[in-house]
């Protein structure tokens, strides 16, 4: 990241929106719900890199039924793919077939819904038996395309958040909580 100031994990945080304890409790709650709803089945948890990694790692351990995991990576607008093809691309596809499987997309945050809308269409084309969405954070104020979320952790206000996998310029992902950055962090970029 090209920035004049040196990032400071502690002092760059303006406000802790969701604490580590709150996240832990919510993940346990979601895990219990999923274990109940998918009882007798083996669910395939599909996580989208990179932001969803901490949530996926915690959620899979909170699920008490058989579960498999898979990872995908999708190019983002503004990245290098914008300059080449001008279209969203699958940078890392699923490792195994999901044909006839119960698939749960594990997302860190849903705001515009653009990436997830693309992903849903892509995964539906692979004929899963069921396809549901579990999102830790839902920011409905920014929604551009409507997405039906089956399992929702927290509905958050219209603020740019980092931490617990979420980044700003690839930083702050390792914060154990969800936080709002000080405005000067952006303006210094």
């Amino acid at each position: 990241m090209d920035r004049a100031r040196h990032p400071d994990l502690v002092n760059d945080v303006d406000e802790v929106l969701i604490t580590e304890e709150q996240i832990r409790a919510k993940v346990a709650e979601l895990g219990a719900m999923l274990s109940r709803d998918y009882e007798g089945r083996t669910v395939v948890l599909v996580s989208v890199l990179k932001g969803s990694l901490p949530f996926m790692a915690d959620l899979m351990r909170a699920i008490s039924i058989p579960a498999q995991i898979d990872l995908m990576e999708v190019s983002s607008y503004g990245g290098t793919a914008t300059e080449t093809s001008g279209l969203v691309r699958i940078l890392k596809d699923l490792s195994s077939s999901i044909d006839g499987r119960d698939v749960l997309i594990v997302e860190d945050i849903i705001d515009t819904g653009l990436t997830l809308n693309y992903l849903l269409r892509y995964l539906r084309g692979k004929n899963p038996r069921s396809l549901r969405i579990c999102a830790l954070l839902d920011k409905p104020a920014r929604r551009l395309v409507e997405i039906s979320i089956d399992y929702r952790g927290f509905t958050i206000p219209d603020k740019f958040v980092v931490g617990y996998g979420l980044d700003y310029g690839e930083l702050y992902r390792n914060l154990p909580f969800i936080a709002v950055l000080k405005p000067e962090v952006y303006s210094a970029s």
């Binding site: 607008y77 001008g86 653009l114």
Partner: peptide, 9 residues
Amino acid sequence: ARIFDFYQV
């Protein structure tokens, strides 16, 4: 519009 095009909306 470019963002919509990128995400094929």
